[in-house]
């Protein structure tokens, strides 16, 4: 039987007590799965990730992680706090928020240092990440000297350096060029192959099929409109359109204007080479 690592029941959260962000969300996340949370802007995806990372607590409902109820009381226990932080890592949407140290190297090792990881192990993790992400030249640079794509890679590296079992990612590919998007997808697939649970909030439908087993679609009412396997969700154009996730393309064929729905499925044919 699949091990459930996150169990959310009837989660409600609102900002300043009057701007609802989540309304009655029920969600189970299975260990080792690739889960994506999709929805238009302002549907509560980032709030959900922050709740999963125990940075904010829901005003109503229950969150269980690794079999234990998550609330402020739970985090008063230092041992559990350390355990939870070492198990769950969040890559923030705004990399500037996450990269607060003077150099890239210090940012990458910040997490493991706080968690008391042994220095030899930190060195090993740092070397491994530098190699796999190709960021050797960035190590001594200050985060403000990096491009958006470089910042995102370093932010992912700073989370992976904690070696968490669960990786939460908030819009990991937003605003990046195609090559960097590809690299980030490869990093996530690699992390998943190593047994990590990947939970991604995004509205970039192009990447979904590769990084999701299960997709949860959030609607304007700040709750889950539908959950299902990636292929089924991506094939449901009406659902995607109703939730502002697809749009109509218009383009010209000679003198005729042609309009159709944007298709995000990776429908392609492999040519046989002899």
């Amino acid at each position: 039987m699949d091990e459930i690592i996150f169990e959310l029941k009837d989660i409600h959260y609102s900002y300043l007590g009057k701007f609802p962000a989540l309304r009655g969300v029920d969600l189970d996340i299975v260990k080792g799965s690739m889960v994506s949370v999709i929805g238009a802007n302002g549907t509560g995806k980032s709030t959900l990730l922050q709740i999963l990372d125990a940075l904010i607590q829901p005003q109503k409902g229950q969150v269980k992680a690794f079999g234990k109820e998550i609330n402020e009381e739970a985090f008063k226990d230092e041992e559990f706090s350390r355990f939870f932080r070492s198990k769950v890592g969040l890559v923030f949407q705004n990399s500037d928020v996450q990269l607060f140290c003077p150099t890239v190297k210090e940012d990458i090792v910040f997490g493991p240092l706080q968690l008391g990881v042994e220095h030899g192990e930190i060195r090993k993790r740092l070397d491994g990440l530098v190699e796999s992400l190709g960021i050797k030249d960035l190590l001594e640079r200050s985060p403000h000297q990096l491009s958006v794509g470089e910042k995102r890679k370093v932010a992912i590296a700073s989370t992976l350096a904690m070696d968490p079992d669960v990786l939460l990612l908030d819009e990991p590919t937003a605003g990046l060029d195609p090559a960097t998007v590809r690299h980030i997808i490869d990093i996530l697939i690699d992390a998943h192959e190593k047994g990590k649970t990947i939970i991604t909030a995004t509205h970039d439908l192009h990447i979904l099929e590769e990084i999701s087993d299960v997709i949860h679609v959030f609607n304007r009412e700040k709750c889950i409109a539908r959950s299902g396997f990636a292929w089924d969700i991506l094939a449901d154009s009406e659902l995607l359109e109703a939730n502002n996730l697809v749009h109509i393309h218009k383009h010209r064929h000679k003198d005729k204007v042609h309009a159709h729905r944007h298709d995000h499925r990776l429908d392609h044919h492999h040519e046989e080479h002899s």
Partner: peptide, 23 residues
């Protein structure tokens, strides 16, 4: 947000930083 990012990576109020032994 920055404080949350620090908490998320295990910060507990007493920062531990990189020493020279890490290169």
């Amino acid at each position: 947000e920055v404080y949350n990012a620090m908490l998320s990576r295990g910060y507990t109020g007493e920062p531990k930083v990189l020493e020279r032994s890490l290169g």
